[in-house]
């Protein structure tokens, strides 16, 4: 009897090991891909501490300590790109979430299935389009000679504006374009949480004599708190990143306004491909990756302290 169980135990063990191997074999393609696409470049970040030499490659190039970083911070560029990246992100996070929550709340107050569905479908459309196409649309509005806005200004007797050469307009243009492209997406995200709020809470509030506004403040917003925290947290974790397409394509790569359009991503791209300035590009990229990582950890840590349920991990 004991021998039989020992044999079947061994058999079971072998079957288990085989199953583990088969399951592992399923993961192989993905594993190889993630190692190459995601993990190898992490190690490659060390290039920021090297004097890059094309013929020697990343590993053959000589170490140069922090000289890429000191070189980066010697110029005005470093401060400029960090200011732009963080500054735009702050405005985007604030405005984007306020608008999205407002739209989600209003969508919930709306009667009628059909119109609700139509509104939801349509506001998502800008989200589906590539930034290159967006830059064409923006160009149709802002082109110096034939843009819609300049024609409008002219028809009222005003002077044409050279949008693509004047920096002062671009902070507003970026905010509008970003909001236009993203509000549908985040509204729908918030709306999914809003419809999940227990309707008896509203009924109880009505019985207590709460008007519409009070219901929003005391029922809807508290119900949304978790989602808002998660969304803002995710966005804060990406504060050092920017939408490369928005800042590079939408201004039509105009060099004259780079003081307000160059974010870290644009700077890294230009350094790598156009200016042959790999030292500073890799130093800026390194700071972006590491600061981004620290920021996610910090933001998550703070939320964990305040309200563990809403922490990401």
């Amino acid at each position: 009897m004991a021998a039989v169980t020992a044999v079947s135990g061994k058999k079971r063990k072998r079957a288990r090991r085989k199953m583990t191997l088969v399951l592992f074999s399923m993961m192989l393609p993905g594993l190889v891909y993630l190692l190459i696409n995601n993990y190898m470049p992490m190690v490659g970040l060390l290039i920021a501490f090297k004097k890059y030499n094309y013929s020697a490659g990343i590993w053959g190039s000589e170490w140069c300590g922090f000289s890429n970083f000191t070189y980066l911070f010697k110029t005005q560029d470093a401060i400029n790109i960090v200011r732009n990246t963080i500054g735009y992100n702050l405005v985007f996070i604030l405005l984007g979430n306020v608008v999205a929550v407002a739209v989600a709340v209003m969508l919930n107050f709306l009667r009628g299935k059909m119109n609700k569905k139509i509104y939801q479908t349509v506001i998502l459309i800008p989200f589906l389009i590539s930034m290159v196409v967006v830059s064409y649309i923006v160009y149709a509005f802002l082109s110096q000679e034939s843009g819609f806005l300049n024609k409008l200004i002219e028809s009222f007797g005003g002077e044409k504006i050279s949008w693509y050469t004047q920096a002062k307009y671009w902070p507003f243009i970026f905010v509008i374009v970003n909001l236009w492209k993203g509000f549908g997406y985040s509204s729908i995200l918030y709306y999914a949480t809003v419809i999940g709020i227990d309707s008896s809470l509203y009924e109880a509030a009505t019985v207590d004599g709460a008007n519409r506004w009070k219901q929003v403040v005391h029922v809807t917003l508290p119900g949304l708190k978790g989602t808002i925290i998660t969304m803002v947290l995710l966005a804060i974790g990406r504060m050092f990143y920017s939408d490369f397409g928005l800042f590079y394509q939408v201004p039509m790569r105009s060099g004259l306004i780079s003081s307000v359009t160059d974010t870290i991503d644009v700077f890294v791209y230009k350094g790598l491909t156009q200016l042959n300035d790999i030292g500073r590009a890799s130093a800026a990229g390194f700071l972006q990756s590491v600061m981004g990582f620290l920021l996610v950890l910090t933001a998550n840590y703070i939320v964990r302290k305040i309200d563990e349920e809403n922490a990401l991990f």
Partner: peptide, 14 residues
């Protein structure tokens, strides 16, 4: 991989 990444320069080189 969702928390940390190498960014453009090392990826491009690789």
């Amino acid at each position: 991989t969702m928390l940390f990444n190498g960014g453009l320069v090392p990826s491009y080189m690789m």
